[in-house]
Every structure is written in structure tokens, then in C-alpha cells.
Design a protein around this nucleic acid. Sequence first.
DNA 1: ATGAAAGCGCTAACAA
DNA 2: TTGTTAGCGCTTTCAT
Lengths: 348, 348
Amino acid sequence: MSKPSQITLADIATRLKVSKVTISKALRDHPDISSTTKERVKEVAKELGYFPNYFARNLSSKKSGAIGVLVPKIAHHFFSSIIESIYDTALKHNYEVILMVSQEDSRREALHLHTLLSMRVDGLLISVSKMTPDMSIFREIEKLHIPTVFFDRVLNDLSFSTVTTDDVDGAYTLVSHAIEQGFRKIAHLAGYSHTNIGIHRRQGYERALQERGIGIDKNWIIEGGFAEIDGKKGFQKLLRSGNLPEMIFTVTYPVALGVISAAKEANIKIPEQLDIICFGGSDYNKCVYPSITCVEQPAKDLGEKATLLLLQKIINGEGNSEKHLVLPTQLFRGDTCQPRLKKQNSER
Amino acid sequence: MSKPSQITLADIATRLKVSKVTISKALRDHPDISSTTKERVKEVAKELGYFPNYFARNLSSKKSGAIGVLVPKIAHHFFSSIIESIYDTALKHNYEVILMVSQEDSRREALHLHTLLSMRVDGLLISVSKMTPDMSIFREIEKLHIPTVFFDRVLNDLSFSTVTTDDVDGAYTLVSHAIEQGFRKIAHLAGYSHTNIGIHRRQGYERALQERGIGIDKNWIIEGGFAEIDGKKGFQKLLRSGNLPEMIFTVTYPVALGVISAAKEANIKIPEQLDIICFGGSDYNKCVYPSITCVEQPAKDLGEKATLLLLQKIINGEGNSEKHLVLPTQLFRGDTCQPRLKKQNSER
DNA sequence: ATGAAAGCGCTAACAA
DNA sequence: TTGTTAGCGCTTTCAT
């Protein structure tokens, strides 16, 4: 008797001496029922502290009214912003959100996705983990024809709809800006080359250099992950090589922080001795010194667009498949990446 | 036929010419079933791409195998860390996590809590929104005797178990440290006085001042919320008063960032012209200048302890009610709050 | 406008 | 070791 058995439709029904069906309909504002009955029913329901059993309701109606969301990480400003906007958008359309976090682990990814499927969610919003994922789970989902939208970190060779940031263009814009400020020796702490964001951001970087006739030095492209620790490692590798660049372009904001942190330890001052730019910012970036010059990702927008696209799929049926939205970034000029000349002269 | 009807136990059963029950048991490794049968069943299940219907399973077993988590915010380093550790801990014990975000809105809080209840979650992990919540929903939960643990932001006059940070002690330690460094004019951007963390952090602040014979100036205690914007507002109020302190102690890390940001705009240098300390840090704090001297909250630990306590309640029954865990903070010495003397002399 | 019957997919007794 | 019988609480036909 730990859990006191919940109030059910039947309880209200016997109390009111009508059938369960009437209660069920009344509670859902079914047009069948007279408004007087509805009122009485709702009153008693409230009085008894009734609330519907989600399982029973969904089992019998075969709808969940929920969308499943799978993200690789949550303690990351970019993702948590996206998630907030997913919640907001879904709620606005009366959908529940079931969130699962893979912790960048592809095993958990499969596990959670199965749970989400077993919950018969009406649709799926997915951002994949950084590790080469076990594709089979995604193929499974493909076969199930459940409405699905991938966002930010997507899988290229699958026929799902996607909502992504314009990574190539963003990186290109940012690195171009750095070149215009007078930087030439620009290294890149890149993302894994099996991830779309890793590839694209690197492409933008390379294109910016090439277009301005600056050679690409493979030693200055260091591949790694997307977290702080990867920034530290990358910086240390650069440091050991004895050939520090003037500027480092990092694949994410946390990686940039890792670099700054490691540089601080190595007594190298940023941006005085070594400058930095990165892909993606954070709310906090503007508040601190140095605020990093970066291209800001449209996190809120990404979450909203992805959710709306999914909702559209769910509601309009699966016909309109494979859409690809690409959202633009915005250049933020912070304390880093100031014109090179200023530093060499005493101009202030 | 958009959603192809899912594979059920019955499908496997007819395929194998045995009963549904056998399948059900085999899939759950029930000792009743011979291992050969189990193998065959599992094989066919995999072949058919079967996975159980979560609703049906839970409806009939009357267990959800999930815990419901309600937080006020997610795009906040402290909460996202807690949430990650809740997920980790729950997963380790084979529990699902259903996360809901109230966005600091007490109406949504009630809404989500009802959803969670209707999902018949086995337990609840709650951190309340900053606004005076509509208590009735919590009283409702109290009556239902569903295992519940509040964490971080708790409700005082209810008989729930809680896991919190030692706010009084943390604030006391931090402010004491500032005084020892030579600061005397210390203002406090405090949290709302109807929240436990608002009250307790202020108590710690006041006690530290009093014990050292420093008078408390009400004008230097400004009450507000926990976000960046509240820091900006607080700073501006202080600025307008024409009586800036030497040091500001903020109730949260985001509030401190708001102050720094507003100070930057007002051309006041931190920590040179105005110094700052805050309750709670972030992974990024160490990477930036100025890194803020603060007391770090045991976020991971909080999430883990709260989850374990809840799990214990769920598993051992509700007998062991009302436990209160209070976790200690840790002082982090950053760039701010350096000894006052150093600044006045030219000592470096 | 209301209700009776059937069943969603599964699990928990109990029998065989 | 396997199967039968009953539901879980709700919604959906289809009668009334």
C-alpha cells in the first residue's frame, strides 16, 4: 500500500452514477457530452484529485503526444540552449518532450533510442554523439518510418531531414575576418573528420586561407574532440612542436577555453602573445576578458526550426520527407582577433 | 499506414507456435523458461525487430522504471551538471529519466508535475522555480506518498527529503575570505528572500560581517533573481546610488557575469576598480580573466546523492522518510579578491 | 446525449 | 516448463 492506488475513471463514474465512457469523453471535451455533465464531471475529477494515466491513454489511443530528443551532451551551453528552445516550441504545440542524453557514447545512444521507440514517441529529434556511431540503430529507425529530424550533428549518408548551422560559411567568415585583421599563421584545432561539423568547419578554414593565397600547413591542423580537454591537448601539441602560430581557430567554444586555460598555465598571454577565435560562443563570452571573437550559432533558432519541422512531419504525415535547413551564423567581434598593427605599434 | 503497426509479442508467438506468455517471460529472462527456448525467442525477436511497448508493459506491471526530474532551468552550468549526474546515476541503476523544465515558471511547474504523475514515475526529483510556487501541487504530491527528493532549491515548510548545498557556510567562508583579504565595503546581490538559497547565502554573508564587527548596510543588499540580467540590474542600481562598494558578493555565478558585463559597459574595471566574488562557479571560470574567486558547488555530487537517496526510497519503501543531506562547498581562489594591499602598493 | 463491448500489448496470478 | 485466464485504465467503434 505504499502507492495508494490512483483514482481512475471508474471511481468518478460510480460516484456520478454514469459510465466510464461518459467521464472519459467529458474530460476530453468531446462534443458528445452536454456541458452540464462536463462541468459536473470535471468538478468531481478535481475533487478526487484525478489525473489520467498516461500509459493507459496512450496504449489505447496509440499516440504518445510526445517527441523524443536525443543529444550527446547537456552541460554545454550550445546544447542546453537548443534543448530549452525545443521544450518551449514543443510545449507551445502541446507536445511533451522526452529527453535522453548519450554522453557522447554510441552504446547509450542505441539504448536510449530503443527506449524512446518503445515509448512510441510520435517523432524523434536527434543529434549524434561524436564517436562513430553504430549505424544500425539509425537504419532501424529509417525502416520504421517514424518522423525524425537530425540537428547540428547529423549523419550524412542517411535520408533524414536535417537542421544544421552553416558551418562552412561560418568558419570561412571567421577565418577571413582574422586574415583581414592581419593574421597569417593560423592553426586549426579541428573536430573529428568523421563528424559533419568537423569536416565543414575545416573546409571553411581551408577555403579562407586558399582564397587569400595562404598555404595550408597540415601540422597546424590538429584533429580532436569538442570539449575543453581537447583544447588543452591541442595547445600542448602545438607548444611542443616549438612552432606556435599567431592565431588559433578552434572548432568549438569549449575547445577555445581549453586552449586559454592551458596557455594560462604555460604563461602565454592571450591575446597578446597568442590570439584565438572559435566557432560558437556563449552568453558568458561577452562578460569576460578576453571575450573571444567568434561566429555565434543560432542555438535557439536551431531548436525551434528543428522542432517545427518535426511537428510538421508528424502532423502532415511523412510525405514531405528530407528537408535540409541550414541556418546562418553571426560574427561577434570580441577582445581577441584585434588588428595586428595595433599590437605592433603603441597605438591604443 | 504511416506508422507501420509495431511487432508485438503475439507476432513472435505465432511465428514460434507458442503462447505470448512464454515469449514475454523468455524476453525478460524469467527462470521459468528453458534456455533453449529463450534463445530461439530472442533470435526471432531480433529478426523481427521487436521491442516491447513501454506503455503496455508499465500499464500491466504498474511500474514505470522511470524517475521524473523537474528543474527550473537547463541552460545553466550548475543545473546541467546536476542533470548529467542524475542521468548517469539513474542509468547505472537501470532507471529511465524523464526530464521536465519549468523555465522558472510556476504554472509550467504544476503542468509538468502532473504529466510526470500521469506517467506514474516511480519517484520525483525536484528543484523549484524561483517564483513563489503554487504550493498546492506540492501538497498534492505529499498526499500521494510518491517518493520525492528536493534538491538545491527546496521548499522549507513541507516534509520532503532534501539534498542541498551548505549555503550558509559557503557564503560565510567566501565573505570571510574577502574580509581577510582586506575588503570591508562588501555589497551583496542577493537572491529572493522567499527562496532557501536566497535566505541562506545572505545569512552567511551577514554572519561573516557581524563576526568581524562590520556593520550591515541594507542599501548594499540588493535582492533579485539568479540570472545574468539580475546582475546587470543590481550593478546599475549600485552605480546610480553613487556609493560603490569595494567588493560585490553575488548570489550566483551568472549574476556575477552580469555585473562584470555591466561594469565593462560602464568602463569600470574588474577587479582593479571594483572586485567581485560569487556563490558557485563553472568549468569555464578558470579559463578566463578575471577568474572569479568563489565557492564551488558540488553539482555532480548533488545530483548523485539526490538520485541515490530517491532510489533508496523507491526500493526500500517509503518508511525512511525525511532525510536532509547538506553538501559542503569548496573555496576557489581566482583572479578576483586578491589582497587589498597589493593593489595600493606597487608590489607585484 | 449516453453507454456496452471490445481491445490496445503486456504481465501476474494460477493451472496444467 | 509451458499455457490459460484476467485484467491494467483508457479510448474507440457502434448501439441505444
